[in-house]
Design a protein around this nucleic acid. Structure first.
Lengths: 198, 198
DNA sequence: GTCTATAAACTGATAGAC
DNA sequence: GTCTATCAGTTTATAGAC
């Protein structure tokens, strides 16, 4: 039951979760409202009692996910940790986000770029810029304080970290061989120490 | 003009290139045959003089790209180089493939998983396995010979390398700030030596 | 909250003229 | 090699009954 205690919002969340799984697996465009309704055991017209449109469903999925992620990132960035620790914590939070919100992350990875062309999804572009600023702040601080090597381009470094982390949604499965925390451990080991012999 | 010297095959290649750009930018499913025809300056029905279906277009784009890539990979793997050099060469070839076949790589990244569910695209699954075997062979050899550290899971290492390289298609643009070779240099530096201070 | 019924637009593909 | 014309199926979305 949701915080307002109504069954309506619980049903809404249920339908959103079903839609998110389908969007993540087949893509937003390739998923029809009939697919979603079928998976929910209702008829397609009934979906419009809960949502304005297919777009409003993916909108709510993405905006809710991003709001939660930024909250967690903020807690790290406003802490007293040094750059190296902040970087590690951001990476761990991100892998954990893949664990807890896999469909939303997958939709973001696969469909956000096209969705962002629509005015309705302006916030995707705004949030991308905010996201980038957060990471770049930590990376720049790390380079300045000597926690990170200084012979690489910071922007390429940012893209490398960002892509490496989020692209894992393509293969990560909860309950698989490695937990999100174990994947984060190994990824951080490669990222910070490299694959070469030690 | 194509190797067989006909205008027909040249026009075909031209239409395929147009389709590939659209598939890469908007997704296979979201791109209509009318979109392709519009971009080519013809009517949608005329496309069917050159191709059986929309699927046969993406089929040709992906299979042609993969055939070329495997040829280049094979040349590396049958060479006398040690594991470390083979790994470097595979990474460089891959970034160069992004440079030369950006649309095909993007389509592979975004749409191949869904396409592969269709029997027609069985070869995508077969090729994925072959691709994995090639990379894992080099990684395992590197660990065995001491060229790569031995305290990480080889499969996670493979995924890390694979994802980091190919996901760059999402932002790499020919003529941008860094060439494909420069990107490969910096990625290899992070991959092999890590981001930590030296 | 779901169903019945249906509209209006879009989509992949075809047949035959030019 | 492209166009005209068009079909059959699909898709998002709506209006009102239950």
């Amino acid at each position: 039951m949701a915080s307002n205690g109504t069954n309506a919002s619980s049903r809404r969340a249920e339908l959103l979760a079903i839609a998110a799984e389908l969007f993540a697996a087949r893509g937003f465009r390739a998923t029809t409202v009939r697919d979603i309704a079928d998976a929910a055991g209702i008829l397609s017209g009934s979906l419009y009692h809960h949502f304005d449109s297919k777009e409003s469903m993916v909108d709510e999925i993405l905006s809710t996910f991003q709001a939660g992620l930024f909250e967690e990132y903020d807690a790290v960035l406003t802490s007293a940790d040094d750059a190296r620790n902040k970087l590690e914590r951001l990476v761990r939070i991100s892998f954990d986000a893949i664990h807890r919100n896999r469909p939303a992350v997958a939709i973001f990875q696969n469909d956000a770029a096209v969705l962002a062309e629509d005015d309705r999804f302006d916030y995707l572009r705004t949030n991308n810029e905010r996201f980038r600023t957060m990471w770049m702040g930590v990376i720049d601080e790390g380079i300045r304080t000597g926690a990170l090597r200084d012979d690489l381009d910071p922007v390429l470094t940012y893209r490398f970290i960002r892509d490496t982390v989020w692209v894992a949604v393509a293969w990560y499965r909860p309950g698989g061989q490695f937990s999100a925390a174990e994947v984060a451990d190994q990824y951080l080991a490669i990222l910070l120490e490299g694959l070469g012999p030690r």
